[in-house]
Design a protein around this nucleic acid. Structure first.
Lengths: 147, 147
DNA sequence: CTATTAAAAGACTAAAAGGTCTTTTAATAT
DNA sequence: ATATTAAAAGACCTTTTAGTCTTTTAATAG
């Protein structure tokens, strides 16, 4: 569904938020292990996300990644778009530039509602709501974010 | 939705079938122009499709690509799978290896029905049904397969 | 103040996807 | 038979995605 970078980014962000809820600021080594992603690649990705303003980080002892609690919840759509670009889930299912309700490609009628559902899904789910969803029965199952 | 090769393959196959219905066997130059794809890349892709048995071709004068009318209609799923592999539209939306109804990832409940719809779409639509769908009001609109 | 810790920066490599081009093979019209 | 046409084969190139690693910067605990 998503490319690798997006996958790692989403899993990383959700893991950070899960730990933040416990008052912890995880670092790259911990994050990469828990989300089952390559160490250095995870580092690069998390750093890009900080530069893009999705979350904060601190260097040095007791450093790590964390969310600014004053900010609104972060829809995963924002992350996906920042990584994969504007085109995501807006194009024609058949790859035609000109395809709409007036001049539909043969797949349009069937694909349009699917595309809408995907858009709803990535708009309505946030890093925070997903992190909360991992707490089934009040406790986070270990290793759940591993691929 | 699909990668470039799959897009070109599907558009190419539908174009061939549209022309076949008119008793014609288009060649690579014509196909690549009509589906708005790179000439040599289109050639390579069409040739792979022939080697995989999806359609037939003839060399030399009056040569070109065409479908074996004795064969069943070709679901686009078969083409997609041959190009993109088995994994297509079967994985977890969140990229987790272990994600099912029993141990769902936070997106599972929302993504599962979408994935099912996509699977239905690619199973039920065939190259032949799409080619017929392009004939709106009995006549094929020109340039409709251009991207 | 300094050793340690951990993120930031950025150079580099590998693999896959996307695309180009030339040469060879085969069909057929003349 | 042969010139012409068009697919087949396959070598190459470019870009993007994925991943690795080293060096630098900054925070803080002692």
């Amino acid at each position: 569904m998503f490319n690798k970078e997006t996958e790692y980014a989403l899993r990383g962000l959700v893991y950070v938020q899960v730990q933040n809820l416990k008052g912890l600021k995880p670092g790259i080594v911990e994050i990469s292990q828990e989300i089952d992603a390559p160490l250095f690649y995870t580092g690069k990705i998390m750093q890009r996300l900080v530069k893009q303003g999705f979350l904060l980080s601190m260097k040095g002892k007791n450093g790590g990644f964390f969310f600014d609690e004053k900010k609104d919840d972060l829809p995963i759509r924002n992350v996906i778009q920042a990584i994969e670009g504007e085109k995501t889930y807006s194009g024609c299912g058949f790859g035609l530039k000109h395809c709409d309700d007036l001049r539909p490609c043969p797949l349009h009628e069937q694909y349009a509602p699917i595309r809408n559902s995907i858009n709803d899904l990535i708009t309505n789910n946030t890093v925070q709501s997903l992190a909360r969803a991992f707490k089934v029965g009040g406790d986070l199952l270990p290793g759940r974010l591993k691929s």
